[in-house]
Amino acid sequence: MTRSKGRWPKLEMDQGVEDAMLLILEWLGEQGVGAMIRVDAERMREGRPAWTFAAGGGPLSEGMRADGVSAAECMSRALLKLREAGLAVPL
C-alpha cells in the first residue's frame, strides 16, 4: 500500500470482505481508480445478482465490472479481477 495512513484494521478471518469494502474503495481512489459498489433493487426482486462493483482509470488499462448475489460475493469477485489486472489490493 502506498501512502499508508494507518487506518487498515486487523480483520478477523470469520468476517467477510464486506467489512473492508469502504477501505478498499478508498485505497483504489488513492491509486487513481474510480470505483463504486451498488445494489439494484429491480434485479434483486427478479432473483438476479443485484450487487455490482465497477472500477476504471488510473493503472487499470480498461474498466472492469463484477456482479454477485451478495455484497461479499461481489467484492470477492472484484478483488480477483483487480488482482488479475495487476492491482494488489491490500487486504
Rank of each mutant, 00 (worst) to 15 (best):
G57A: 07
V33E: 03
R48G: 03
T2G: 11
F53Y: 09
R7V: 08
Q15V: 04
G34D: 11
D19Q: 12
M13D: 11
L87F: 03
K10L: 13
G57H: 06
L11T: 02
W27H: 11
S76F: 00
A88V: 07
V33C: 06
P9A: 09
L80V: 04
L28I: 04
A20D: 05
L80K: 10
D67Y: 05
G68Y: 00
S76T: 10
Q31Y: 00
L23K: 03
S70G: 10
T52A: 15
L22W: 05
I24Y: 06
S4I: 01
V33Y: 03
A66V: 07
E84L: 14
L80N: 03
A55T: 01
E73V: 09
E30D: 14
A35E: 03
G57T: 01
L79I: 09
S61K: 12
L87Q: 06
P9F: 07
Q31G: 03
L60D: 01
R77N: 15
M1Q: 08
V39P: 00
A85Y: 00
K5Q: 12
Q15R: 14
A78W: 03
M36F: 05
G29D: 12
R38T: 09
V69H: 12
G63Q: 14
K5V: 08
D14F: 09
S4N: 10
A78K: 05
A88N: 08
V69N: 11
G57N: 09
M64E: 08
R83G: 09
K81C: 02
P49S: 06
E73C: 03
A54N: 09
M21Q: 13
A35F: 01
K10E: 12
D67F: 00
V69T: 03
R83Y: 00
L60E: 01
W27E: 10
A35L: 06
D40T: 06
G29M: 08
R43Y: 00
P9T: 02
R48T: 00
S4K: 10
A41L: 15
T2E: 12
S4Y: 05
A41N: 12
L91Q: 04
A66G: 09
P59Y: 01
E62P: 00
A55F: 05
Q15E: 15
E26L: 10
A66W: 00
L82G: 04
G86R: 07
T2Q: 12
D67A: 11
R43D: 10
M75A: 06
D40I: 07
E46I: 01
E18V: 08
A50H: 06
V33K: 05
V33W: 02
R7T: 06
R83C: 06
E62M: 13
R38I: 05
A71P: 01
C74W: 02
R43P: 02
R3L: 14
S70T: 15
S76V: 01
D14V: 07
R3K: 10
M1T: 01
R77Q: 11
I24Q: 02
L22F: 09
G34V: 07
A88S: 12
L23W: 04
A71M: 13
D67K: 13
A20H: 04
I24A: 06
K5A: 11
K5Y: 07
E26H: 10
S4G: 14
W8E: 11
G86V: 04
G68M: 08
E73L: 10
I24H: 04
M21A: 14
E30M: 13
V69A: 14
E18A: 12
A72E: 13
G47V: 06
R3F: 08
D67E: 15
A72T: 05
E12D: 13
G68F: 04
G86Y: 01
S76E: 15
